[in-house]
């Protein structure tokens, strides 16, 4: 069980997919305009990652080496389609605001990366731990970015339609830049520098 814990904790901070491994920027920058989107995206990524890690790990001994990557891509694309259909049916508002970034999970480097680098070499239990850890690490990173962007960019914070707080001054004059695309680069760049300063992120 200690192995399970080790693989689980690893993905959250030491090898955080976004801040340390610098993988999966595309969805992280695009959907971090609101906390709602960040949560939706994280749930989607977690589902696909968990599913693909389990299946890849289960078939790791029988999959022929030369068709390894195509097989992984088919597995990932299947889970992404399942997530798309489920989101479309049960959370249509979220499905719409995630737009093309939900299907684009299929080319998210984190997922193929974990399948290739971890799940294809390790047993199912540690692959599950790895998927959970990486998903939580991805979620925390996305949450930090989206909290900053939503609060500065709209002057308020809301969660699935409930307004949690409205900031003084900013509430009337939000810094719209932060929810526009350049704001994403700005926040991400400063956060990366901050994490590196704190020693969490290794240099290049």
């Amino acid at each position: 069980m200690s192995g399970f814990r080790k693989e689980f904790i690893k993905g959250i901070i030491i090898s955080n997919p976004l801040f340390v491994l610098a993988l999966g920027f595309c969805p992280a920058l695009a959907v971090s305009t609101s906390v709602d989107n960040a949560i939706g995206m994280s749930v989607g990524v977690a589902f696909v990652l968990l599913g693909s890690n389990i299946i890849v790990s289960a078939i790791r001994k029988s999959v022929p080496n030369i068709v390894r990557i195509p097989v992984f891509i088919v597995i990932i694309a299947t889970f992404v389609t399942v997530v798309n259909l489920i989101f479309h049916a049960f959370v249509p508002a979220l499905y719409e605001s995630l737009g093309i970034y939900l299907p684009l999970i299929v080319v998210n480097c984190i997922i193929l990366g974990r399948a290739e680098a971890f799940a294809s070499k390790n047993p199912i239990t540690s692959s599950i731990a790895d998927a959970l850890g990486v998903s939580i690490g991805f979620f925390l990173a996305l949450l930090i970015i989206s909290l900053i962007r939503e609060m500065l960019g709209t002057g308020s914070l809301s969660l699935f339609g409930y307004n949690l707080l409205t900031l003084p001054v900013l509430g009337d004059n939000p810094m719209i830049l932060f929810i526009l695309p350049p704001g994403a680069f700005l926040v991400m760049g400063l956060l990366l520098a901050l994490f590196r300063r704190m020693g969490v992120m290794k240099g290049e």
Binding site: S62, V63, P64, V67, P70, V71, V74, I75, A77, T78, T81, V82, L85
Partner: peptide, 14 residues
């Protein structure tokens, strides 16, 4: 055969 099987299963699940 393997990849055909995988695609077949994927399509069935979908």
């Amino acid at each position: 055969i393997f990849i055909t099987l995988v695609v077949f299963l994927a399509v069935a699940l979908l």
